[in-house]
Amino acid sequence: MPDEPPGELAFLRSELDRQLRWYSKRRKRDKRKAFGLRLSTVLLSAAISVLLGLRNLGGYADLFADIALGLGALITVLAAADAFFSHRELWILRTHTVRDLEDISRDLRYCMSKDLPEDALKRDVERIYGELNRAIARDSKNWDRLRAPAATQPKE
């Protein structure tokens, strides 16, 4: 790694932009999946209510009851998938990480706008790089905590 700040600065800018893109993409994906699972269960629950209400139509009572039973089972599977994959919690976690990275990016842009001597710029770049590493480590730790089985999670 070169000693001059412009090389370190270029690396930091590139790495920060890469991490922001990656975490933003993951956040959108998790939001989309969380929304899809939640909306699916709500729509299927509503469909069950309608089907059970339509059972009084002549000759279709058993068919509607069977479809409602199948939809109820599907809701159970979707709820289990939602609980297992925790897309909503991942979306929230990634949102916090993206906000942290945006704050770091703003700090870096501010640092770059100042007319600093080379040694002061290098110190700021090192400090901001440390913040970037801490934000990523915090996300990783929170992801591990979210994924750990409930029995192995530390008591707070």
Rank of each mutant, 00 (worst) to 15 (best):
A81S: 11
A81M: 14
A81W: 14
D82A: 07
A83P: 00
A83T: 00
A83V: 00
A83F: 02
A83K: 06
A83I: 00
A83Y: 02
F84H: 05
F84L: 07
F84R: 03
F84C: 01
F85R: 10
F85Q: 13
F85W: 14
F85E: 13
F85Y: 15
F85L: 10
S86D: 13
S86L: 08
S86Q: 15
S86W: 03
S86Y: 03
H87F: 15
R88W: 12
E89S: 11
W91E: 14
W91R: 07
W91P: 01
W91F: 14
I92Y: 06
I92S: 08
I92E: 14
I92V: 12
I92F: 08
L93D: 13
L93F: 12
L93T: 09
R94W: 01
R94K: 04
R94G: 00
T95I: 01
T95D: 14
T95L: 08
H96V: 00
H96T: 01
H96M: 00
H96Q: 04
H96R: 06
T97G: 07
T97F: 05
V98L: 05
V98R: 06
V98W: 02
V98D: 04
R99M: 09
R99N: 12
R99L: 10
D100F: 03
D100P: 01
D100E: 12
D100Y: 03
D100T: 01
D100H: 09
L101K: 11
L101G: 12
E102G: 11
E102S: 15
D103P: 00
D103W: 01
D103R: 04
D103K: 03
I104D: 03
I104C: 06
I104W: 05
I104E: 04
S105I: 03
S105H: 15
S105C: 08
S105L: 09
R106V: 09
R106C: 06
D107Q: 11
D107S: 08
D107V: 02
L108F: 05
L108Y: 06
L108I: 06
L108K: 05
L108V: 04
R109T: 04
R109S: 11
R109E: 13
R109N: 09
Y110M: 06
Y110R: 10
Y110W: 06
Y110K: 05
C111V: 02
C111A: 10
C111R: 03
M112H: 04
S113H: 12
K114Q: 15
K114D: 02
D115P: 01
D115V: 11
L116Q: 07
L116E: 11
L116A: 09
L116G: 04
P117E: 15
P117C: 13
P117I: 15
P117F: 13
P117T: 14
